[in-house]
Every structure is written in C-alpha cells, then in structure tokens.
Computed example of a mutant assay.
Amino acid sequence: MKNKIVLAIFGAFSLVACGPGPGSSPQENGSERAAHALETTPQYDSAGVISAVDGSILTLDHDGASGANLPPGRNDFVAFADVLSEAPLEPGSRVAFKFRRNDEGLELTELKAR
C-alpha cells in the first residue's frame, strides 16, 4: 500500500515537472501572433463625412479606397476609444481616416477633422 502511495506521489511530481517547456507559453505566443497580425495588416486612407455614431460604431459616407477594394459609399466602421478620443464625432463632420480590414469588418485606426 505504501509503495502505491509513493509511486502516485512520484508520478504526480513527474507530470508537474514536465510542463510545457521553455518558450511555449500559449498566452505569449497568442499575443505575439496578434501583435504581428496588426503590424502586417495593411492600412488604407480615405476621406468622408460622419453619417451616424452609435457607441463605437461610426457610419461614414466615404470616397472609397481602391487598394482595399472598397467602392465609394456608406459603411460602418468599428472604432476604439483611442481613435475616438481625438476625433470630431458629430454627424456631418468632414473627416480623413485610416482603416484596416479584419475578420469582423472595417476598423478605424485613425480619424481626424478635414
């Protein structure tokens, strides 16, 4: 009986000691991949007029961006607080902006008065 307990404790310590190994932390690798994806995702420039603001969603009537295959028209863009904090947010404001495409749609990376 004592042998089984000793073997069980030894086995538990062996498994704990194995671990994932150096440099293979899933948290680090995931955040590094996300940062790299943002750095390599192209940004596009355009200009337009704010049509509506609903929380972090801006609806813009814009000139389009041929590089992004985005024809002129009206689209919703997600904008985070750092972009919104320095921008005019009233409907009718003329703006210049930079954006990128991501899995969720269009994301503003810069927005300023024109």
Score class of each variant (00 low, 15 high):
G21W: 10
V53G: 01
R74N: 09
V95P: 00
L60Y: 03
A96V: 04
A87W: 02
F77H: 07
L60N: 02
N69C: 01
L89I: 05
I5F: 12
T40I: 06
D103S: 10
I5E: 05
A65L: 00
V95R: 01
D76N: 14
D54K: 14
E90L: 11
E107H: 08
T109D: 04
I5S: 09
L58C: 07
V16T: 09
D61P: 00
G48R: 01
P91C: 04
M1Q: 15
T59K: 02
F80D: 10
S14G: 01
F97I: 05
P88N: 00
P71W: 06
G23V: 03
L38H: 10
K2Y: 14
T59A: 07
E28K: 11
I57Y: 13
D54I: 11
T40A: 08
L7Y: 03
R94W: 07
D76W: 13
P88R: 00
A52G: 03
T41D: 11
K112N: 13
S93V: 01
G30W: 11
A17I: 02
R94E: 06
V49I: 13
D45A: 06
L58S: 04
A37T: 12
S24K: 06
G105F: 14
P26C: 13
T59W: 04
G11W: 12
D45H: 15
V95F: 04
I57S: 06
R100L: 14
A34C: 08
R94I: 00
I57M: 14
E107G: 14
L58R: 02
G64A: 13
G48A: 05
V16C: 14
R100I: 14
E107A: 09
G21C: 13
T41F: 04
F99W: 06
D61I: 04
